[in-house]
C-alpha cells in the first residue's frame, strides 16, 4: 500500500470502573478513501470505538492515529503528553462526526448550524461561511430549508443538516455513529443516499450501522464487533456471504430475519 493509512488503531481499550470492558484490545486500519462499516449487536463497542477516534471518549489503553498523528496526545520527545484544549480542538476539526441523535443546535437555523464551525474555528466571515453553507445545503438537498430551525425539520432533514455541518469543516475522515437508528423507516433512505454520495466522492468513512443493505452496497470493508472486540472483518461479500465465526452467523441470522 503506497498511501499511509488514514486511521490506525492499535490495542484500543476502554474500561469503565473495574470490570466493564467496552473495548478490549481493538486493532483497525482504514485506508484513505475507504468506507468501513462497523456492525454488531448493541453494546458491542461500535460507538465507543468511533467516539475514541476523535477523543470524545478517552481510551484507557492503546493508540489511535488519524492522518498519521496520534489523537489526544502529542508524542514529542518520546513522551506521550495529553493535548491541551486548543490542540485537541484543532485535531477534532479534521475529523467530522455525525451522531445518532443529530445534536443540531436548536437556537440556530439549519444554515447557521452548518457554518458555525467555519466562523468559530476557521475564522471565516459570516458571509464567506454562508456561501460555503449554501452550497452544502444544496448538496444535501435542503436549499429550501436554510432558514428553518431544527425543531421544524424532520429527522431525516436534521441528519442531513448534521452531515452538511460535519462536511463544512472539510474533514479528512467522517465518522457516523448509527446515523439512521433514530429515524422513522421512511426517512432512512434520504440520509443513506447522502452518505452514499459522500462515499462516492472519496471521503474516508467509518460508519457504525444497523443498515445491512447500506453496508453491503457501499462499504469497502465490513467489521463485525462483539463484546468490545473485532471478531471478523472482510469485504461485504465475505462477511454477508461466507461468515466464518459462529457469533457473526448468529448475528446475521437475527438481523436479516
Amino acid at each position: 500500500m503506497a498511501d499511509a493509512p488514514m486511521i490506525e488503531v492499535t490495542g484500543l481499550a476502554k474500561t469503565y470502573g473495574e470490570s466493564v470492558k467496552a473495548l478490549n484490545g481493538v486493532d483497525l486500519t482504514v485506508q484513505p478513501g475507504e468506507v468501513v462499516c462497523l456492525i454488531g449487536p448493541s453494546g458491542s463497542g461500535k460507538s465507543t470505538l468511533l467516539r475514541s477516534l476523535n477523543f470524545l471518549e478517552e481510551p484507557t489503553g492503546g493508540v489511535v492515529k488519524v492522518a498519521g498523528r496520534r489523537v489526544g496526545f502529542s508524542d514529542k520527545g518520546g513522551q506521550a503528553r495529553r493535548l491541551g484544549g486548543r490542540e485537541l480542538a484543532a485535531q477534532r476539526a479534521e475529523i467530522g462526526m455525525v451522531f445518532q441523535l443529530f445534536h443540531l443546535w436548536p437556537h440556530l437555523s439549519a444554515l447557521e448550524n452548518v457554518i458555525l464551525g467555519l466562523v468559530e474555528v476557521r475564522g471565516l466571515s459570516t458571509a464567506d461561511a454562508a456561501r460555503v453553507g449554501h452550497e452544502l445545503m444544496r448538496k444535501v438537498d435542503l436549499a429550501h430549508k436554510m432558514d428553518a430551525f431544527p425543531e421544524h425539520l424532520s429527522g431525516g432533514q436534521r441528519q442531513r443538516v448534521a452531515i452538511a455541518r460535519a462536511l463544512a469543516m472539510n474533514p479528512k475522515v467522517m465518522l457516523f455513529d448509527e446515523p439512521t437508528s433514530a429515524l422513522d423507516p421512511e426517512l432512512v433512505g434520504e440520509v443513506l443516499a447522502v452518505m452514499e454520495q459522500v462515499a462516492a466522492e472519496g471521503m474516508t468513512m467509518v460508519v457504525a450501522t444497523h443498515e445491512m443493505g447500506f453496508a453491503r452496497r457501499v462499504a469497502d470493508r465490513v467489521v463485525f464487533m462483539d463484546q468490545g472486540k473485532v471478531v471478523e472483518q472482510g469485504t461485504p461479500d465475505e462477511i454477508f456471504g461466507t461468515p466464518k465465526s459462529d457469533r457473526l452467523k448468529r448475528f446475521l441470522e437475527r438481523v436479516v430475519a
Binding site: 484544549g85 480542538a89 476539526a93 467530522g96 462526526m97 441523535l101 445534536h103 443546535w105 455541518r165 469543516m169
Partner: peptide, 12 residues
C-alpha cells in the same frame, strides 16, 4: 450531545 457536537467540529 450539544457540547459534543461543538467539540466534534473543533470548537474550543
Amino acid at each position: 450531545g450539544q457540547i459534543e457536537a461543538a467539540q466534534a467540529v473543533g470548537m474550543s
